[in-house]
Design a protein around this nucleic acid. Structure first.
Lengths: 251, 251
DNA sequence: TGCTGTGAAACAGTTCACAGCG
DNA sequence: CGCTGTGAACTGTTTCACAGCA
């Protein structure tokens, strides 16, 4: 029922701010790159640059994890990699199912970054009987009928939904009923899930629309600089059929 | 150079909060669905439920756009669709190029939601000469050599990067040099762009890691409820080789 | 009366600036 | 001395609660 419901209201002491959690993977990636180049230590300044944030924010973020740096020196790369991995729960590996093996699902299945750090694709599932048994990314696609069995047999708690929008809610419900408690949703729909289930969404067209908004703004500013009225300017604070609106006014 | 640099610091009056902008596409989608069902008006409560937010937030969001509702009644669906589309800049259409036509790029090219609302795929570009001319989503793939020409000829200002991580920064620079000012990045890298260029990133493995974090937390809580020490509990605030850390301690 | 629109309060996240440790 | 770690100030976002209009 509750739709955007995420985890608990951040109980006092043990709470790492959500914004910080969202940046840990970024730090981890930057640190892993340094580790591969055998760099032993980094300063907050250097690491922040590599991760694309500012150093004050990075230090504050790390302060929630504990005091892992050395004053006057910086952070030990290997040690931090381990601490962040542990904090993110990547020291265990998470079996994941991908439901909906269309173009996108197949692309996700083939995505290398999956298998690398802590995640393992346990199964690919599709509703199309013609897909069943066909190998995608070296793995046979299984039919939706098997969904519950697969989840239970593999102890899957994370599901990826890459179905068309129309099927997403139903798939979601089956995943949740079978025991999945975290869902990554690529379908352009709002999913309703019970409390205690986390949903994150990845939505191409939303991202594009946000870019378009800013793009339009830039265009408007240039025009304004040229002495032209920007397309969005002079919004009437009262609505009304003031020429502004095309053939789609209220009845 | 500046990495996370987004738009201006929200100049007073004309500024719609970023958080609001990010939700407008959600409202628009819900409204479009209502519109297709010929629903004439919605209350903030109903629309909020459809978009998966709470109604106070929705009303506050709309209040930044102007007073588009009718007290005691609600919002006119068609009218709001238009206002939000206009605010997002979707009344014009935006030519977009996709660079990197691997699994993911092809999936994006095939994604219907693209063409629908305000966006048009102007070209598919890949560095592999073997791909050149091959049709993907009914469109011939063009070689990277053509990139600058394509951008200029089509007046493209939005680029989608779906290349491997290693190629992303270079592609980004070419896009920007050719005139692109908004980038949607699917490659798992931090892109550096000059001021005035917007970047949004979509990153599968980051999303999964965030889910893993919460998932681990849930598991820890269950264990705690069973009287077992949760995996992340009792973090030593001073670091040190106290059994906690495996073979990866600082030198 | 039933809804929107919005100040004001509460909360979350970021940035500043510097104390304090190695 | 150079860097981390962190209170304190600030900025942005959400929620509350209700005045005010159709």
């Amino acid at each position: 029922m509750a739709t955007g419901r995420t985890h608990r209201p951040a109980t006092r002491s043990r709470g790492i701010p959500e914004a910080t959690v969202a940046r840990l993977p970024l730090y981890l990636r930057a640190l892993t790159a340094l580790s591969e180049r055998s760099v032993p230590t980094v300063s907050s300044e250097e690491l922040a640059a590599a991760a694309g944030v500012n150093s004050a924010k990075l230090r504050k973020d790390f302060s929630y994890l504990g005091s892992y740096g050395t004053r006057g020196v910086g952070y030990d790369v290997e040690y931090l990699v381990y601490q962040i991995s542990r904090e993110l729960g990547l020291t265990q590996d998470w079996p994941v199912v991908i439901v909906g093996i269309g173009n996108l699902g197949a692309a996700l299945a083939n995505y290398g970054g999956f298998a690398s750090r802590g995640f393992r694709v346990a199964a690919l599932i599709d509703a199309d009987p013609a897909m069943a048994g066909k190998p995608v990314a070296g793995m046979p696609v299984q039919h939706t009928d098997e969904l519950e069995k697969i989840i239970e047999d593999n102890g899957v708690s994370i599901g990826v939904i890459a179905t068309p929008a129309g099927a997403a809610q139903q798939v979601c419900e089956r995943l949740v009923a079978a025991g999945v408690t975290s869902i990554l949703n690529f379908a352009p729909t709002v999913l309703s899930v019970p409390d205690g289930v986390d949903v994150r969404k990845v939505d191409l067209s939303i991202e594009l629309q946000i870019l378009a908004f800013h793009e339009q703004r830039k265009a408007g500013e240039e025009a304004a600089a040229d002495g032209v009225v920007p397309p969005v300017a002079a919004k009437p604070h009262r609505k009304g059929p003031d020429g502004d609106v095309p053939a789609v006014m209220p009845a």
